[in-house]
């Protein structure tokens, strides 16, 4: 890979670079963002599919109280309008500073999706992820102004994406102590999906008695172990899933990354 100059990227402390190549700051919400711990911060920016006309975009961040917050903004002349901020979601996350989730994406249905973490600590002590009444450890979908649970059983899905060609969903879910996982759900699938955490870590039972029966249990399509083999150098973490079909070389595959 080679360094590039343009496109939109967010800085963890809460500023965001311009979507144009001007290099100037597009959005500055540092005063709203808590980034004291490495998993906190301004974690995602998603542009509305109609952004070219409506100038509407969305941000996912850890707010100053430690909660997950999703806001929308509009831009004018290549800069976000601070006064246009609308709060769309706040999820209490004060108990712990880890597992903040973070991804925002528009799906093939044109709706906004957000990946939330399980609330943090380790092992999901309050059993948030398998609890459908809580918005932690979930893939949420904004539908007609209301957030629905689209999938559950996630630990910290801070990066996921939809295949730009066919709408299939890929999630990189961070493991507990042993297994990182890649979750997959084809667009044609219907109904609620349960990706297993914290009943399972990867393919292995973790707290199996917690498993809820609602929807369909989907086991990961790929797991990566921390010990031995490919991941022995550092503690492995799935941090992203994306697809790129445009090229015909090695990049024309689902690409996952770990650090």
């Amino acid at each position: 890979m080679s360094p590039a100059a343009s496109t939109s990227s967010s800085a963890q402390g809460g500023s965001s670079a311009s979507p144009a190549a001007s290099g100037r700051t597009f959005l500055d919400i540092r005063s709203r963002v808590e980034s004291g711990y490495s998993e906190q911060g301004l974690l995602s920016v998603a542009f509305h599919p109609g952004y070219a006309k409506n100038r509407l975009f969305y941000v996912y961040y850890t707010n100053k109280t430690g909660d997950i917050e999703i806001d929308s903004f509009r831009s004018r002349s290549g800069r976000a309008l601070a006064s246009s901020r609308k709060q769309l979601l706040v999820v209490n996350h004060r108990a712990n500073d880890n597992h903040d989730g973070g991804q925002l994406e528009f799906g093939p249905d044109g709706r906004l999706y957000a990946g939330t973490g399980d609330g943090g600590s380790g092992g999901d002590p309050p059993d948030n992820s398998q609890n459908l009444s809580r918005r932690l450890g979930k893939l949420l979908r904004l539908n007609g102004g209301r957030w629905q649970v689209y999938a559950y059983g996630l630990r910290n899905p801070w990066r996921f994406s939809f295949d730009r060609a066919n709408g299939d969903l890929y999630i990189g879910d961070v493991g507990q102590n042993a297994w990182e996982e890649i979750d997959y759900r084809p667009r044609a699938a219907t109904g609620l999906a349960n990706f297993g955490w914290s009943a399972y870590e990867g393919l292995v039972p973790y707290r199996p008695s917690r498993l809820k029966q609602a929807g369909t249990l989907l086991k990961p399509v790929q797991v990566y172990g921390h010990a031995g083999g490919n991941c022995s150098v550092t503690a492995a973490t799935s941090i992203g899933v994306t697809r790129c079909r445009r090229r015909v070389d090695v990049t024309s595959t689902a690409t996952t990354a770990r650090a």
Partner: peptide, 11 residues
């Protein structure tokens, strides 16, 4: 960076 692709629902 790792890569995989899906074929028949499997990686």
């Amino acid at each position: 960076i790792w890569s995989l692709r899906i074929s028949g629902g499997k990686a």
